[in-house]
Design a protein around this nucleic acid. Structure first.
Lengths: 225, 225
DNA sequence: CGAGGCATTGAGTCTCCTCAACATGTGTGG
DNA sequence: CCACACATGTTGAGGAGACTCAATGCCTCG
């Protein structure tokens, strides 16, 4: 039971450098939490109670705008640590796309953990830098690439975190994809159709199961050139 | 002399909570550095030697892409602390737009400072969160707004950090602006022209001095709605 | 004076958005 | 069990906005 927790912590970038003994001291502070598809782990604006370590499943982060518009910040999978910001409230919502198994830890316990083992600080800062860089990249992607090219970037990303060779299982809607890539639903649909016509991808009838037929071409289209 | 350093540190978000005695311990580690317009304080990819606190002047941060393309991450002014990332190299270049007066501190000294006064950690994390949120916002702006609307967002930002009521002095080129907003030079020029024709802004002959004639309308256009 | 960087402007083209119609699947209430 | 609302997705027509390409003017610097 605790061994499962420790093994999950070891697989997270933040705690990778801690010894099993160190993790053992804190493993009792983590508690399992499971969510169904479309559940929110937390919502933008709520006071931050817990940080979450994703053990299994897929999720998306979203930020609402005043008018009902929405920015989908990102999609992700296993091993990410989320919700430990320092802004007084959660700054984005975290939503389950599939069944999500997670370990949650109270903010106070989390920061005590970090304080006791300062090397975690370094890992957190490093990850924060990577995420910020990723957003610079996304801003450039949305600004410079065409719709079907942006889609290639996303398909590569999904195939990577799903670790499923040459396949991408889309657990989000076309609307979600559009809000991430800065396209409307119609344009997302047309972008898929274009890649399919050019035999770069193939789709099943549901439109949710994508075969990446020509990964070299996908890589080319996804490059910021 | 040292009083000048301490006063500058006090005006920076990261050191605002430190006592004058605490700052005094470290003020000797900061050294003045002045840069001319178009100078780089540091370049993307270089090993990080110093962190910089901007005392005076304006700057921009940029990230190069493989092909010669470029993402301008942002423009800014006085009081910002830059270059203390943890990625092994600087992740973006920092370029002076005007004459820039700064205080630089060696990375080792900076992190020793932070270690001695952990509340600085908190400020740094908070600021990092704000910057990441700002990039989410920029991604949404570039994805959803029209050219002249994006320009309004930028003009508001510049007027804010220049703290010059109803005016914006553009110390960057149209090309820089385009690389920030995801537009090409021509489109930037047309966006200015459009705002000018609609009497929302006025420009001098140089095109570098912008009067914000209708700030209410600018606010409306800049809103993500 | 000439070269090069910066900025503007016009013509033509392409991408994406808007709006509308339509298909499919799911859940709810009569 | 059927009728219906609703969410999701696809497709087409028309138009707005941004890009490409080219020409031109201004300014600075050697």
């Amino acid at each position: 039971m605790s061994a499962d927790v420790i093994s999950s912590l070891h697989n997270c970038y933040a705690f990778r450098d801690q010894s099993s003994e160190q993790l053992d001291h804190f493993s009792g502070r983590f508690h399992s939490a499971t969510f169904n598809p479309h559940d929110y782990l937390y919502r933008e604006g709520d006071p931050p109670k817990f940080a979450y370590l994703i053990q299994d499943g897929e999720w998306m982060t979203e930020i609402d705008h005043a008018d009902g518009g929405r920015q989908v910040a990102g999609f992700g999978g296993v091993g990410e640590l989320l919700g430990f910001g320092v802004m007084g409230t959660y700054v984005y919502s975290l939503k389950a796309l599939t069944i999500v198994r997670s370990l949650k830890i109270a903010q106070n316990d989390f920061w005590k953990f970090v304080k006791d083992y300062p090397s975690i600080q370094y890992s957190l800062r490093k990850r924060a830098n990577q995420i910020t860089l990723g957003m610079y990249r996304q801003a450039a992607i949305n600004a410079k690439l065409k719709g079907h090219e942006r889609l290639c970037v996303l398909l590569q990303h999904i195939a990577t975190y799903q670790n499923s060779d040459g396949m991408a299982q889309l657990n989000m809607t076309r609307h979600d994809i559009g809000d991430h890539l800065g396209l409307n639903v119609d344009s997302v649909s047309r972008a898929f159709k274009k890649l399919q016509k050019e035999k770069i991808i193939d789709m099943d009838n549901s439109g949710r199961q994508i075969a990446l037929l020509d990964q070299i071409r996908i890589q080319e289209l996804a490059s910021i050139i």
